[in-house]
Every structure is written in C-alpha cells, then in structure tokens.
Design a protein around this nucleic acid. Structure first.
Lengths: 119, 119
DNA sequence: ATCGTTGTGAACCAAATGGTTGACAACGCG
DNA sequence: CGCGTTGTCAACCATTTGGTTCACAACGAT
C-alpha cells in the first residue's frame, strides 16, 4: 500500500549525510545554511538532500524571510518501525519455534544431515 | 561507527522487490528460484538482489546440493530500530516540550509573528 | 559420462544518484 | 534603489543501480 512511500523513506535514510541531518534536526529546526555548515559540500548539494528528505515526508520546510527553516516530521518514522517490527517478529517467532523443534527432537538429524559442508 | 553498515541496510530495504523478499523470508527460508518465481525478472536479477541483502547482513546463504537456501537474519533489524527510535524519541520530546511552552504562554506571539505566510 | 537443474559471473545498457558550477530569485538592509 | 545574504534551478558529469543476455560452474539423475 505505502510501498512507494516506504521505499522513499528507506532510500532517504540510506545516505549518511542525510541521516546525520535528520539526527541534528531531531534536536531542533535549522536553516539550510546551518545544516550545510558541517559538511564539505556545496549548499546546493545540501539543498538536494533536503529535497529527498522532503519527498520522503521526513522533513517540511517553511518560509521565514530568505530563510527556509527545516523541520523534522517524526510521524513517518512509524511507517518504518511498523514494517520492521512486523517482519522481525515473524522471523524471531520462527526462530523460537525452530529452537523448540530442535529441543523436542534430540534425535538423529545430525547423522543423515542432508546439508553438506555444514561442518 | 556502524555508519556504513546502517547505510547498506537502509539501501537494501529501499527496493520494493528486496523488501518483499525479506517479507517472504520472514516466514521461512527459500531457494533463489523460489524467491524469483513471483517476480517478472530474471533469476540473475534476483541473485543480485540477494547479494545486496547479504552485503547488508540481512540474509545468509548456505549450500544444499545445487540449492542455495536463503535465510533471514533478524538481528540486523535491531540496528535500524535503535537508530530510528533514538531520533524519533528526541523529535517527539522536543515536540512535547514545544507544546508545553505554547500552552504556558497563551501570549502575544501571533501578533508579531515573524513567520510570514504562516496563514 | 552426459544431461538437466540451479545458481553465479561478466559484459553491457539505461536510468537514477550525488556531486559540481553558474545563474538567478527572494528578501532585509544601507 | 542597489547590495549582500540565503537558497533554488538548470546543466553537466562520474558513479551506482537494477536490469538484461550469454557463458559456465556445481551438482543430481539417467
């Protein structure tokens, strides 16, 4: 459903610079210039990064004279968390079940183990 | 520290096909062919996707005759969850604090609001 | 030993990504 | 008004990405 949205969010956070910007925005809004300062790239590059983050719904930009304060939108994080938790839980449950099965049958298995090079 | 690792994980999950593969692997291991079946792409393309997922530590591949069963590794999810939760919490706390401030000063603010076009 | 199945490797291609520079719009201030 | 500041847009470039096809390795089965 939100497949495309989710892709954009993950894509946006796949870049270390963008992730760092998000981290800094978590403690307060900032202007483009302020955001750009720590990095060794042009302001234009940072502007592009912001467009990606905005496209993913991770930040919003308002207007204040020439400034364009950037604001972090925390809600979108829920999208990711939900996705992650869903499948992690499934995988972990399956793991637990496997554990139980292995414990229950303390049986042959190993002797005619069909899995080669499991050594 | 895990900056590069985290980038790879987010990057890996930014692709819908890869995300779907992870979703399916959450309910059990599968061979490359099985994984490829639902998609309208070549087996080679799926093999590439698996290499990306493996590089991110999201899956491991063993050997069973010609088969290469793919197994989901749930632990890596923690990395993401930790990152996300950390900044989401910060952002939400800040939001709550702002709320409190606004509630406390039911004051002017609006009249000499420096933010243009806030309307 | 040969054949079919399963999967990987390599070369190639179009599109997207992240960066650059140059031009310019929007705004406050002298 | 004209100027400096702040930021975006556009064109361009190198690299990466996701896909293809062809070739081949690894293994079971006949």
């Amino acid at each position: 459903m939100t497949a495309d949205e989710l892709s954009k969010v993950f894509q946006a956070l796949a870049d270390p610079t963008r992730r760092d910007m998000v981290a800094r925005l978590a403690s307060g809004d900032a202007s483009v210039g302020e955001l750009a300062a720590p990095y060794d790239v042009s302001v234009q590059a940072v502007s592009k990064h912001l467009k990606v983050l905005e496209g993913a719904g991770l930040v919003t930009r308002s207007r204040e004279a020439q400034r364009r304060p950037v604001h972090l939108e925390a809600e979108v994080f829920d999208l990711m968390t939900k996705w992650i938790e869903r499948y992690r839980r499934a995988a972990e449950e399956r793991f637990a079940r496997l554990d139980a099965v292995l414990a229950a049958e303390a049986k042959p298995i190993a002797e005619d183990n069909p899995i080669g090079e499991s050594a």
